[in-house]
Computed example of a mutant assay.
Amino acid sequence: MTKEPSKIQISGLVLDRIRDKQAELTAAERRLTAVLTDDSLVAGLQSITKLADNAEVSTPTIIRLARKLGYDGFPDLQNAIREEIAARMKEPLAKLAPPTATDNKDHIVSRFALAVSQNINATINRIDPAEFDAVAHLMADPVRALYVLGGRITRSNAHYFFNHLQIIRPGVHLLDSSPSVWPQSLLDMDENATLIVFDIRRYEKELQHLASLVVGQGANIVLFTDQWGSPIEKYASYTFRTSVEVPSSWDSTLAINFLIETFVAEIQTLYSSTDRITALEQMIGESRIFRSN
């Protein structure tokens, strides 16, 4: 007998549904969603009366919100929350299921490519074009200093984005991976600064603490995270959620790189970098770093 797919797979993530329905919610319902999203839905695992007390709403408000989000009631919403939290907290080794007989018919290259293409399509579907444009203009503004930082797995994404941004425009800084040197950068962050941070599953506490300090300095944050959402979301002015699951014990950051390269293309059209790139090419020629033809 084929196992019936879970409701969360059919209906989408609870956090995405909350975001999509915000404009339709009452004041009490928005207060309730703020409590749910403040701690990545964990508050939703409480009893309905305890959740109502914490959010200062009535139990019927919780039931109405669950139905507005597309669930049959609060127990159905709780089941979706449990499943979402379980998926988010899944250890890397637990993601690598043993192969079955049917798996052997399909090569890993094909299965991996299919998963990556699905991740990119899901990521595209989450993008708000107006939000994307606003962030592209923000990153192309030479008055605004940009600071880029990634976590243990996403550090390579941060380096990749930094390498492109510093060629296109001035005022781009790559933060060192060691938290001990972050205060020097924090000193220069103000309302004209933006921290671009990458943080996916097994979210790093040091990055979250840094985000709170950055906001305290008056700067804003652009966050690239996974489909479940890093805790840094509550500090970020803009968040881009990407899908990361593939047939591997590791999460894939290819959807993040897709967004990075899309931003690079748009930023280059917004900020005229011809003179800067020409000067760079001249410096490269004079330094004789590369072989000449």
Rank of each mutant, 00 (worst) to 15 (best):
I124F: 01
F263H: 09
A134D: 08
I127K: 06
T61I: 12
L207M: 09
L65R: 10
T123L: 01
Q9K: 09
F263S: 03
G151D: 03
T26W: 11
G171W: 02
N257G: 10
I167F: 01
H137T: 01
N79K: 07
E281V: 08
T33F: 08
S110D: 15
D106V: 14
Y160P: 00
Q166I: 07
T33Q: 08
A236K: 06
L195V: 04
T2V: 09
A43Y: 07
V135G: 03
I10C: 02
F258L: 13
T154K: 01
Q208K: 11
Q184V: 13
L254K: 04
V109P: 00
N79A: 14
R144S: 02
S156Y: 04
A130Q: 11
A113R: 12
Y271C: 02
L210V: 05
W250Q: 06
Y271A: 08
N79P: 00
R291C: 01
S177Y: 07
L77G: 01
W228I: 09
P99N: 08
Q227A: 14
I108Q: 11
P60E: 13
G285A: 15
D16A: 10
A122H: 12
I260N: 12
R291F: 10
G73F: 12
Q22Y: 03
T194Q: 05
R64A: 08
V172P: 01
R31K: 15
K21A: 14
R67E: 13
A86P: 00
S292N: 12
Q9E: 07
S178R: 13
A27P: 04
I63V: 15
K7I: 10
L259K: 01
S292P: 00
D38M: 11
N121V: 09
L69F: 08
H107P: 00
E261T: 13
V244T: 15
Q217F: 00
S110M: 07
E24L: 14
T123K: 05
K95W: 03
N54W: 07
L36C: 14
P170V: 00
A23V: 06
I256N: 04
V148T: 10
T2C: 00
L69M: 11
E91V: 05
S248A: 11
Y71C: 06
I85N: 08
N257V: 03
T242H: 00
S230R: 01
S6C: 03
V57N: 07
D106C: 11
E4A: 10
V172W: 03
M1C: 03
P183H: 08
A136H: 07
S248G: 02
A255Q: 05
A255S: 15
A134Y: 03
I232T: 01
T154Q: 09
N192S: 04
F162P: 00
H137M: 05
D53F: 09
E4C: 02
I153T: 14
P183Q: 10
